[in-house]
């Protein structure tokens, strides 16, 4: 039996374990400011994961993740301020449901239509949706207009108030970890194999009998659900939700998080959030007016010269593409016995 021409080296599990170990112990050494900062990274990590799922795995260029994020953030903020509902056991599922419903409505327009959705059509459709809803929110006094909804109450679990700090940190980490593990299972499942097929040669796999639009639509809605969940957590963590959390600026930022860290690996998008937010913070300390220029140039260099993102320095193409049905001892015997 010949040696495989391209061996599969697995770097991602090692990166995941190291980052998880760091995340578990960080609150022991960080002060309050950095615990808040890292919690925000975890919440934005969720939305970056959602974009990685649609773009890195299914090849759908969505500029609508902020729309699902912001709509869920606004909805849960209204439920909390108008109805007094603050239970985390209601807020998080409602946020996820809003993300799911809004993304399904968007999918009906840009993915499930009669015409085959091109990448440009979906990108522009989602961008337009995000822009329109942001403008609506800015002009609608019921949701606070330009000022958004501020002074949100704290989330509660029974009679316990979940304040920003270590408790919120571990809750956000727990949700991020759960979503991450589920997405890892999904992208390595047979469903993930179909997504890999769609990403590489969508036209080809239609001839196997796959209704690729359905698979893209389902993936888009799962990503919407995750974005919604992130939106709910974000509003209550920051105590505020505003039109900026609905619009194209945040949507573009999410795209950059994933491209900078490395699409199609899940962990790359979380690394992207952490590093970009960290660079942004330190650059703004050094040059408080011109730091976005430096950050923009840095992102441009990475996207142009390392299309696989920073994770591409550690993870090979074979591992990114994934393996869905490994050949173990049983099949090796199968080959040996018959060749």
């Amino acid at each position: 039996m010949s040696e495989p021409s391209t061996k599969l080296h697995r770097a991602i599990p090692a990166i995941e374990i190291v980052l998880l170990a760091i995340a578990l112990f960080l609150p022991l050494v960080l002060d309050d400011f950095w615990i808040l900062f890292t919690t925000r990274v975890f919440i934005l990590g969720l939305i970056a994961l959602s974009f990685d799922l649609v773009w890195g795995y299914a090849g759908i260029m969505s500029f609508g993740q902020a729309l699902f994020f912001g709509m869920a953030g606004y909805s849960t903020a209204l439920i909390a301020t108008k109805l007094g509902v603050t239970s985390v056991f209601l807020i998080v599922p409602v946020a996820a449901l809003v993300g799911l419903v809004v993304s399904f409505a968007m999918a009906l327009l840009v993915i499930f239509g009669k015409r085959q959705p091109s990448m440009v059509f979906v990108a522009l459709g989602t961008l337009t949706g995000s822009y329109v809803v942001e403008r609506l929110a800015r002009g609608w006094s019921y949701v606070g207009g330009q000022n958004g909804i501020s002074s949100l109450p704290r989330l509660t679990a029974g009679s316990y108030e979940i304040s920003e700090g270590p408790v919120y940190y571990y809750m956000a980490l727990g949700i991020l970890l759960t979503v991450y593990v589920l997405l890892r299972l999904l992208t390595r499942s047979q469903f993930g194999l179909v997504l890999a097929g769609i990403r590489q040669r969508e036209e080809r796999i239609k001839f196997f009998g796959y209704r690729t639009q359905n698979y893209k639509g389902i993936t888009f809605c799962i990503a919407g659900l995750i974005s919604g969940m992130a939106g709910g957590l974000y509003g209550f963590h920051e105590g505020y939700i505003g039109p900026g959390q609905l619009g194209p600026v945040l949507s573009t930022q999410i795209v950059l998080y994933t491209l900078f860290g490395g699409a199609g690996t899940l962990i790359g998008s979380i690394i992207g959030v952490g590093l970009i937010d960290l660079f942004s913070f330190y650059l703004s300390q050094i040059w408080n007016t011109g730091w976005p220029i430096i950050l923009g140039l840095l992102l441009l260099i990475v996207v142009m010269f390392k299309p696989t993102g920073l994770i591409g320095f550690l993870v090979g193409d074979r591992e990114r593409a994934g393996s869905f049905g490994r050949i173990g001892a049983k099949s090796a015997a199968h080959v040996k016995g018959e060749v």
């Binding site: 047979q190 194999l193 179909v194 097929g197 040669r201 080809r204 009998g209 869905f324």
Partner: peptide
């Protein structure tokens, strides 16, 4: 063929197409 996937996965992708999502 799906050049980034293994030979095995290419055939698996084709054979599993009758399964539901």
């Amino acid at each position: 063929v799906l050049a980034e996937l293994s030979v095995y996965d290419n055939v698996l992708l084709a054979q599993q197409s009758q399964s539901s999502w």
